[in-house]
Computed example of a mutant assay.
Amino acid sequence: MLWNVDLTLVDVAIVTRDAYAEAFRQVTGRPLVKLAPAMGRPDSEIIFETLAVNGIVTGDDHLPRFIEALAAAFAARRKRLDKDGQAMPGAKDALKAVARLDGVVQSVLTGTIKSNAVLKLKAFGLDRHIDVECGGYGEEVYPKATLLQVAQGRVKARHGFRCDGANTVLVGDSTRDVQAARIAGATMIAVASGRSTAAELNEAGADIVLPDLTNASEVVAAVARLTSPLDRRPV
């Protein structure tokens, strides 16, 4: 089972923006004027667009330098996460409830770079039921559907489970998450806790749309509905 992070499990937008501004200043020597919107996109894509809309002509070293600076800037602000951010309502209980299902492997499929995603999860105690080594992250320059398949391969290599679309559930809040699941052949539980409405998530093709994660039993029931008992060996 793969979880999106931002606006599905946590909301730390203020800290993230501050870290982006610091990273932009370090890489370009200029103040950040406009940050490209996330909209379910990976950090690598956001970085390139942010540089472009601020008039920076990019070279081969811009992305790795920016990712390194972003990781350092975010880590320097990690003590602000629980003050200026929050776990999404019900996130901790939902993760704990799903972990009780037999054979479940929970990880993340996120546009956030790995080091920052781990800090976000740890800040709110959400990492306890997640194997972060199996996830897909924003510094990996793949379309999100391809990144989902990369994560499936990591689960298979790490846990020895068969992992394909029939036994992979993605939980996310954006239409891009839904599109990635559909392209990769995975099933999709969409949560209308982000910037996409329930109607938009349904129209994009989500298998199940929940208003939020506050009803852990509802989340578990959604997983059960989308997988058979055999499938749930490696959800």
Rank of each mutant, 00 (worst) to 15 (best):
L147V: 08
G135A: 08
A69N: 04
S107V: 04
K120C: 12
G103E: 03
C134K: 02
V155K: 01
D93K: 13
D131F: 11
H129C: 04
S115P: 14
G138L: 03
E133C: 07
Q152V: 01
L70D: 01
L109Q: 05
H159L: 11
A151Y: 01
V132E: 14
K83M: 11
D93C: 02
A87S: 15
Y142S: 00
K96A: 14
F124N: 03
N116M: 06
A73V: 05
G111N: 06
D84R: 13
Y137E: 06
L148Q: 01
A99N: 13
L70Q: 09
K156Q: 13
G90R: 04
S107A: 12
V105C: 07
R78T: 11
A75H: 15
I113H: 05
A97T: 11
T110E: 04
Q152S: 07
A117N: 00
D93G: 08
L70M: 05
R100D: 12
D127R: 06
E140D: 10
F74G: 01
A151R: 01
V150R: 13
Q149I: 11
R80H: 13
T110M: 07
L101D: 13
D102R: 14
A75P: 00
D93T: 12
L95N: 06
I113G: 05
A73Y: 04
D127A: 13
V98M: 14
N116L: 04
V150F: 13
P143G: 04
G160P: 07
G135L: 02
A99T: 05
G85Q: 08
D102L: 11
A87M: 09
G153L: 04
A99S: 15
A91Y: 09
A72L: 10
F124M: 08
G135E: 05
A76V: 09
Q106S: 09
V132L: 14
K144S: 05
I113Q: 13
K144D: 08
G160F: 06
A87R: 04
L119F: 07
V98E: 03
L148M: 15
P143D: 08
G135H: 02
L147S: 15
D127F: 03
H159S: 03
F124W: 11
G90Q: 06
Y137Q: 06
K144F: 07
V150S: 11
L101G: 08
K114I: 03
P89G: 09
D82Y: 10
K122C: 03
A73R: 01
V118P: 00
G85E: 07
T146N: 10
D84M: 11
A99H: 15
K144T: 08
T110W: 02
P143N: 04
T146P: 00
V141F: 07
Q106P: 01
A117R: 01
R78L: 01
A123M: 04
V104I: 15
E139G: 02
L148C: 01
M88L: 15
L121Y: 07
C134M: 12
D82K: 13
R128F: 00
S107Y: 07
Y142E: 10
D93E: 15
R154L: 13
D82N: 09
Q106D: 05
V98Y: 05
R100L: 12
V155F: 00
S115Y: 05
A151G: 11
V132A: 12
L119T: 09
R80Y: 14
L121K: 06
A71T: 14
K92N: 11
K120S: 08
R128W: 04
A69P: 01
G103Y: 05
G136V: 04
K156P: 00
D131W: 05
M88S: 02
L148V: 03
